[in-house]
Design a protein around this nucleic acid. Structure first.
Lengths: 197, 197, 197, 197
DNA sequence: GATGAATGAGAGTTCATTCAT
DNA sequence: AATGAATGAACTCTCATTCAT
């Protein structure tokens, strides 16, 4: 056992993909090492060998999840409105690729549900949450500076938008309603007031 | 033994309280019949005697939780703005009593995290979600009719507000930030634009 | 609790019928006090009140079963061949009434399977077995004395016939074959040699 | 874990022996995984690991029991009478080795008592029963063809003999009588009539 | 590095029995 | 006499973890 000292890339990739699949398929409460292993071509002893404990595997997984997350949410465009709308779309619906759509946010919400009871998880989630809030604020700030958005408070606006996005995702997976689509429509109404026409 | 046919009030109360406590204390993933029983002065078998299965106990618990929820969220006042603000406060912070504050929403979020994997839970959550959306919409509608709110779309506004509230609760318990307080402040900014001055 | 001191006839009857039904329905291994009670209109506490333990209830049941058994197996006729054939038929197929047909022997075999591990049961079964062997021997003895059967050894003949009957019953309920019907036919062949023509 | 896909010989053997011992010691009704494990040097979990469920372990055990059974019952001799008598002896008393004597038939009878309530068990028992009937019939058929037995119906004779053997075994373990010895003696009387002198 | 085998701890559940009414 | 409520013991089965190979 070595736990953290250099896990081969191949294994790391397989472990992360398998954890992701299993987490989405069964949810955090019913996630087991066997189910994770079964989503890969490796056995559960192998994952124990490389990560020692289930918790450590999950800590690594959260990092992997959030790293990818942060990199992909902001679309490359100069137009602040396009940037904001693109960001909201990615947050609500994921990117087009099958990797992230749906399943990504499902995994994240499952992890979040466990965060209150796990300090490590909570620390990771907190850092990510602050980062996402930061970039959201920046997008709005930028829009204001470029004269495209009205002069509101960027951080408070970001907090409302981000909170609503997280809430919609939660409602989406825990009810039979299409809550993300509903919020997308509703946000258009609200954002309309933000724009300088 | 009997499962649904009339559980004594005393037991029902003990079971619900104990489930609530255990759920908040350990989270859904680590919730066990033993832990529930240990939060009461009854033993595991007793709860099995009255509810048969863990799942059935939880189904009953969710109903108990949501019934109480729906009854308590709308404050009794005629002023639409006070009503809306009171509603938001209760949704974000609970009522003053120790019963609901914090722990109630924590329990609800834990249950929600399992809803994607449990049809019964999801059905119950969906019904509640729709009910809450309905009364939120009504509050806004009423404000518009009474000339206190600007003429926006009530449902879309309700969706944004509600989503943001749910998102803030989720952020609150899964990060180290005081996300509910943050949203409360941020919403004041936004709501300011809703009011007819 | 009184255990044995005078159980009301009504209860005795209900207990015995219910035990019989439950035993046939679920088999000895899956027989529970609840299942027995559910076959009656009384609850399991009531049976515990009157019989104290499950074992004691079963001991009483066996006695009830065997008492009825012994009384009903020998048909009333003077003709030794008719008597023997009638006896074999009742042993293999029960009487016509729904009470005994099939279910009686099923219950008996279930009880027998437990006899090796329960001295009381075994004692009761032994006594009954010896009694049945005794009356079978008598029937044959009588036939010989009346000159209707050839002069074979009555006891040995009885042992073969009785053993075959018990074996056929066992094969009947533990295989998909109609083993009792098969034995009935086969015995006709064999018995043909017993008769003085 | 894998259930059917190749259980190591060593384990298979230990599982079968332990199940056999426990079944004979406690009977089907009181057979538990713990008791089975305690008859071996492995723990409960190990047997669950290899066989998944108790039922599956028992299905495998029945197959193991019957396979051995079928192979050992017919003695190697050309003389039809010796063959028949040898077969009856083995069926009634087992072979000389401690493996089969007594305990084998005890185990089989315990399993049989559960067959009415378990389709898989019943299927296995039925197949075995038919096979044993088949070879018994053959032994008698052979004796007739070789002119050593009188010209009776082989199948009906086999049915009576086999049924009697099964019945004697059942009586043997469920009463205090030496029922197998009794039948052996009684059958000699009957078989005497079968032989061409 | 990788994995099948093994296991202790603990999960949900069942059940004979007891007790209060 | 009768029963709903309650429970400890024991059941089957699961799972993270360890170990031998």
């Amino acid at each position: 056992m070595h736990s953290d000292e250099s896990i081969p890339d191949m294994i790391e990739k397989k472990a992360m993909k398998a954890t992701h699949k299993a987490l989405c398929k069964y949810g955090y409460a019913d996630l087991t090492m066997k189910k994770i292993a079964d989503e890969s071509d490796r056995c559960k002893s192998t994952f124990h060998y490389h990560y020692d404990t289930k918790e450590n595997l999950l800590v690594n997984f959260i990092q992997y999840l959030l790293d990818g997350f942060e990199k992909r949410m902001v679309p490359e465009t100069e137009d602040p409105l396009k940037k904001l709308n693109g960001f909201i779309d990615r947050m609500l619906f994921g990117l087009g690729d099958e990797e992230t759509a749906e399943s990504f946010h499902t995994a994240l919400i499952e992890i979040r549900s466990q965060a209150p009871y796990n300090e490590k998880f909570r620390g990771q989630i907190t850092k990510n949450d602050e980062y996402i809030l930061h970039i959201t604020t920046n997008i709005i700030q930028e829009g204001i500076e470029k004269g495209r958005f009205k002069n509101t408070d960027p951080k408070n606006t970001a907090i409302v938008i981000l909170s609503a996005i997280y809430g919609a995702r939660a409602r989406h997976i825990s009810t039979d309603r299409n809550a993300t689509e509903e919020l997308r429509t509703a946000l258009d109404w609200i954002l309309d007031e933000l724009i300088v026409k």
